[in-house]
Amino acid sequence: MALDLREVITEHHPEDELLREDRIPHIWCPGCGLGVAVTAYIEALKLASAQIPLEKQIVVSGIGCTGRVAGYINVDSYHTTHGRAIPFATGLKVANPELEITVFSGDGDLFAIGGNHFIHAARRNVDINVICCNNFNYGMTGGQVGPTTPEMAITSTSPYGNMEEGFNLPYLAAASGAVFVARWTTLHFRKLRDAISQAFAKRGFTFIEVIAPCPTSFGRPNELGQGLDEMEWYRESCVIDHQANLREIGLSMRKDSKIVVGNFLDIERPTFLDRYQEVMKRAQAAGGKR
């Protein structure tokens, strides 16, 4: 019996409910890691839906390939300006504390143009989740050097090698005040999904770095091969170490290096709104109109 392809094609994808079908196909390249990260996020949304109704789940993105995530997920979604997803999300969250807000954006967006906002939101401990898909370059604009590009890596604007060191993101997040810090790769689908679930359950500023292949712009010039090759390299080089010394887990992305992954930090700290409640009490107790 011949397979009726039309039937296969129109059959529902398991994530259809949470994808904006009418926006598919997406713009991402073959071998890109973003699809895996999005799927992990959607799975986590579904798992959490008994506790957090989907209409309270909000995704906010900045600009770039990862910035497009907001456009594909079928929850309330905001695609903001370059680098500003975090302050935008901060406004959303404190204006409506019932919302579960996840900022989904890329390394350039969050840590170059948006770096200042990241450290301050972490310091404030505003109750939002930040997922950074780190592919070590500005993919959308053609693979320029970025704030996480490893030292001496080749990009279109570091054609002889990058003279700067890239950020060690988990170390930065922890130092800035995040209460939950994890790093996984797109190979670690279930670990990533579970980390996102943990972030949903966590009150305060959470940070998850997702190491993702960008075969088109970063993989090729840096001898990481196609997307699948890079995933295979993740399998060989990743070391799970939840207790890792964050100071020592910077990435070189060289074939002979290791990638330390894990759920590194999980602590409690009053959130911005916890403290604000206290401030409001004081203000109202002080009474008087002034």
């Binding site: 906010v60 975090i86 302050p87 935008f88 406004g91 200042n116």
Partner: peptide
Amino acid sequence: MEDEIASMAAIVGASCAG
């Protein structure tokens, strides 16, 4: 906020929340 860029982004976000 940490600067006026963030301030402006935050009021747009807050307005989107009502």
